[in-house]
C-alpha cells in the first residue's frame, strides 16, 4: 500500500511539472517578443484618438471558437492568435474546438452566442461563403461582425505528373476533348469545389467532382494514381510539389505565391480567376462599438508581432492581416462570387 501511495504521489508531482512546463514556454517565448511590438498600435494610425466611451473590457476569460478539430492547422492558427492576443488584452483567451460538418457546427454555435465580445469565432471561406447557400443553416455572413483576417491561402490546380497538360490552355483543351474528367477536392461544399465550378463556368469545360475527406486524402489519392486532377490549398501542396510528385498548372493568387514560387497564376495565363480561402476572426453581430474596437486594436497588434510571424511561418502559411473593413469587403466579395456559382449550378 505504501508503494501505491508513493507511486500516486510521484504521478501527481510529474503532472504538476507538466502543468508548469506547459505554461512556461508560451510565457517565456512571448515575454521576450512583446517589447518590440508595443509600438504597433500607436503607429497604426490614430487608434488612440477619442474613444466613444470608456468600457472595462475584458474582465473575464474570452472564448475563441475554432470550428475544426484540435491539432489541425486552423486550430494552430487559433491557439497562436489566442496566446498572443490574450496576453495583450490581459485576459486568457480559451480556444474551444467544435468540429463537425465542415465548420458549420461551430459557426452555428458562434452565431447563437451572446454578442458581448466574450465570444470570438474563426471562420473560413467554406463555412461562411458556401455552406449558408447550399445547406439549411441558421446563420449567414450578416450574423457576424469582423475583427480581422488572419491568413488566406490560394488554390492550386494540381495534376499528376503524367497528365498530358503543362498549362491551363492545354488542360482546358484536354478536358474539352475528354469531358467528365474526375477532379478531387477536400470535401463537398468546400471552397475548393466552388473554385473548380467557377473555372468550369468560365471556360465551358465539364468535369466530375469527387469529394474526399480532407486535403491529405486527396494527396494520397493523387500519389497513388487514383486521381489525376485536384484542387488543393497551397499549404496542402507545397511539400509534395517540392519533391516533384505532381504538377501545379496554376495558382489562384493575384501575384505569384511565395509558398509555390514556381507555379504561374491563372491571371498570367489569361484566365480571370482569383480566389483565396480566407481565415478570419469574427464576433457575433451587434457587439458594442467600444468593445469591438478594443478587440480589433488588440488583434491588429497581435498580428504584427514576431511571435505570430514565426508561428505562421513554421506552419507554412502567410500572415495576411486585413483590417475589419477590408476583411468585411473581401468576405462579402467572395460570398457574392460563390453565391453566383451556386445559383449557376442550381439552374443548370
Amino acid at each position: 500500500m505504501k508503494k501505491a501511495f508513493a507511486l500516486i504521489l510521484s504521478v501527481l508531482m510529474v503532472l504538476s511539472l507538466a502543468a508548469c512546463s506547459q505554461s512556461a514556454p508560451s510565457g517565456g517565448s512571448s515575454g521576450g517578443q512583446s517589447t518590440p511590438s508595443q509600438s504597433t498600435p500607436s503607429q497604426s494610425g490614430g487608434t488612440d484618438a477619442a474613444e466613444p466611451a470608456k468600457v472595462d473590457f475584458p474582465t473575464k476569460t474570452i472564448t475563441l471558437i475554432c470550428p475544426y478539430a484540435a491539432g489541425g492547422q486552423s486550430d494552430m492558427i487559433c491557439r497562436t492568435v489566442a496566446d498572443k492576443m490574450g496576453e495583450l488584452l490581459g485576459q486568457t483567451i480559451t480556444v474551444v474546438n467544435t468540429p463537425g460538418a465542415g465548420g458549420s457546427v461551430g459557426a452555428s454555435q458562434a452565431a447563437a452566442e451572446k454578442n458581448d465580445g466574450y465570444t470570438m469565432f474563426m471562420c473560413s471561406a467554406g463555412n461562411i461563403s458556401v455552406v449558408p447557400y447550399c445547406s439549411e443553416v441558421s446563420y449567414t455572413i450578416d450574423s457576424f461582425d469582423m475583427i480581422g483576417q488572419a491568413t488566406d491561402t490560394p488554390f492550386c490546380l494540381v495534376v499528376s505528373n503524367d497528365f498530358p497538360a503543362e498549362n491551363v490552355d492545354e488542360f482546358v483543351a484536354y478536358v474539352k476533348e475528354h469531358p467528365g474528367v474526375n477532379f478531387g477536392t477536400p470535401g463537398a461544399n468546400s471552397s475548393q469545389e466552388m473554385f473548380m465550378h467557377q473555372m468550369e463556368q468560365l471556360t465551358g469545360i465539364e468535369m466530375t467532382h469527387v469529394p474526399y475527406g480532407g486535403g491529405s486524402e486527396v494527396n494520397a489519392a493523387l500519389l497513388g494514381g487514383h486521381l489525376e486532377v485536384a484542387c488543393l490549398c497551397t499549404t496542402d501542396v507545397y511539400a509534395n510539389l517540392k519533391d516533384g510528385l505532381y504538377k501545379v498548372l496554376a495558382v489562384s493568387s493575384e501575384d505569384t505565391d511565395p509558398i509555390v514560387p514556381d507555379a504561374p497564376t491563372f491571371i498570367s495565363q489569361g484566365y480571370d480567376l482569383t480566389c483565396t480561402c480566407y481565415y478570419s476572426i469574427l464576433v457575433p453581430a451587434g457587439v458594442e462599438e467600444a468593445v469591438i474596437k478594443i478587440l480589433r486594436d488588440a488583434y491588429a497588434e497581435t498580428m504584427a508581432t514576431d511571435y505570430v510571424a514565426d508561428a505562421f511561418k513554421s506552419m507554412g502559411i502567410p500572415v495576411s492581416y486585413l483590417s475589419a473593413e477590408e476583411t468585411s469587403e473581401k468576405m462579402h466579395k467572395v460570398t457574392e462570387e460563390f453565391k453566383a456559382i451556386i445559383d449557376g449550378l442550381n439552374n443548370a
Partner: peptide, 10 residues
C-alpha cells in the same frame, strides 16, 4: 483542476 490546468481542456 486536472482537466483545465494540466490537460488544458476546457
Amino acid at each position: 483542476f486536472l482537466f483545465t490546468k494540466v490537460f488544458g481542456i476546457y
